[in-house]
Amino acid sequence: MIGAGIAKGMAVTLRNFVGSYLEEDRLTTVQYPEERNPLPENYRNFPILIFDGNDPHAGLRCVACKICEKECPPQCIYITKSEDKKPDYMGKPQFYPAVFDIDISVCMSCQICVEVCPFEAIKMDKEFELSKRERFNALLERKEQLAKSNEYYHHIHPVEAAQVDKNLAEAAAAAEAKKKAAAAATTAKASSVGDAVSVPGKPAASPTAQSLGSTSSPGVSPPAAN
């Protein structure tokens, strides 16, 4: 019978129409500015720089190693290394970025900068309402706008941030333990130096020099470029 297929289709339309008032999985629209769907944990938008503590300058984790600048596919990161050094979260003096700009009109939210950063310094934001009134300067995010506290990071990515904190704490503990071991070795060596036969020309063979010279620790490996 001609028209039966159309009638069948119309029945589907009717079911959907009625269902959109009653059934949970047909009720899909939300009235956006008033109502919002929660963003998933992994949602990413544009990069931010994480700092520990309260001071964005003192706590900034970024050490201006420029790896992210090199790896960013559209080359939208611009970094200038500082002249002086400031202590990082482990107390080691490190460089910091004097200038750190990201052109978010070019950034394509690919997350490669986050993946390659060896210092857990750059992470992805979840802020998506970013309309600006100007095309050029407003879309160039400066270090001041990019710096976000670790609490904010915990707020937007709770699971990931907890993992990062754990890794960093482990790395710091490992570094601490190493330092202690090295110090112990130094004292041990100092006490036993009288009867030990030292190998001339091979000072690197002593455990002290090796463990002090290497800063590598699990989770936080130093960049090759630095």
Binding site: G5, K8, G9, N16
Partner: peptide, 14 residues
Amino acid sequence: DEFEDLILQNEIVI
């Protein structure tokens, strides 16, 4: 199933 009901026998689509 629903989508197929909606279109596949529809005379106009055919």
